[in-house]
């Protein structure tokens, strides 16, 4: 991009604006982290305190008394398995849509149509289905009952697969067919082409899809709240459990929320480099 050299007041204004925007978006996270280290006496005071003696009491409460890592473990299991399933099936489905135009566009549209209603509209049927499924033999063996991991995994896969397929179709469409043709002439079988040429080239797209899916699963609340009680509850439900009859325990809530957000922050930061690199990754064009 071409940029002219600007005078210093313009520069000050520019960076001032950027700073404001950053503050605006970053402040809630900053305040959450800050609160998690505050003693109870410093939390609800007005005016708000920025300087105080930090304490780990809130973390102790969240981790020891409430055993918050239990929720983190559940979330990790459910999110990662859901994401793996979504990416595996999503990329195969997207590939066939992109290359063979399966269903002439109708199936692809139908898939998207399942996303056209709010989650709340289907939560009751889901609840009933999983309640009954949990009583069957296959439901028992796959942990598909209420308050079991399988039920949430299936729900998350159902909800993320359409979006993942749509995202991935465009990535696969961007890979020139000629690359696959060339590889087939160069001695690879169709499956080898997929494994050695197409999927590596689609890796950035697959990574993006995985990131979005994982974030969605990690942050999902409604399904987790309705379909679980305790055994399979995720972090979002875990945080909610701090809203007790005696009042909201803001300190432990902030600590738990920080613990819940931290893995995603780190994950996205790690993946970000890969995702941006991905945008300049495709095949050479004329």
């Amino acid at each position: 991009m071409l940029r002219r050299k600007s005078s210093w007041p313009v520069e000050v204004l520019r960076y001032g604006t950027i700073l404001l925007v950053i503050l605006f978006f970053f402040f809630p996270i900053f305040w959450m982290v800050l609160t998690s280290f505050k003693p109870e006496s410093a939390i609800m005071v007005s005016p708000p305190q920025f300087f105080f003696t930090p304490t780990l009491d809130n973390y102790a409460h969240a981790l020891v008394d409430k055993n918050f890592l239990f929720y983190v473990k559940n979330t990790l299991i459910i999110s990662v398995i859901s994401t793996l399933i979504v990416v595996a099936f999503g990329s195969l489905a997207a590939y066939s849509f992109a290359r063979f135009n399966v269903g002439d566009g109708h199936i692809l549209f139908f898939i998207l149509s399942t996303k056209m209603m709010p989650a709340i509209a289907v939560i009751l049927p889901y609840f009933l289905i999983f309640r009954d499924l949990g009583k069957t033999a296959i439901g028992k063996s796959l942990h598909l009952g209420l308050d079991q991991h399988g039920a949430l995994i299936v729900s998350y896969v159902m909800f993320n697969l359409p979006f993942a397929i749509w995202l991935l179709v465009s990535f696969f469409q961007d890979i020139p067919r000629e690359l696959e043709h060339s590889a087939r002439l160069d001695g690879l079988s169709r499956l080898q082409v997929l494994r050695k040429v197409t999927f590596p080239l689609a890796a950035p797209g697959i990574a993006v899809t995985a990131v979005f899916t994982l974030i969605f699963c990690w942050n999902e609340f409604l399904f987790a709240y309705i379909l679980t009680r305790k055994a399979a509850s995720t972090v979002t439900v875990g945080v909610e459990s701090f809203f007790t009859l005696q009042g909201i325990l803001w300190g432990p809530v902030a600590a738990a929320a920080t613990i819940a957000v931290a893995p995603m922050l780190v994950f996205v930061l790690v993946m970000q480099r890969y995702m941006v690199r991905g945008l300049t990754f495709g095949a050479v064009r004329g």
């Binding site: 000629e178 050479v284 064009r285």
Partner: peptide, 20 residues
């Protein structure tokens, strides 16, 4: 005969090089 067994080589309009 499959493509890879025909001993045919091809060059393409968009070169079809592996970018990475």
């Amino acid at each position: 005969l499959r493509a890879r067994d025909r001993n045919v080589a091809m060059s393409f309009e968009n070169y079809a090089l592996y970018a990475p």
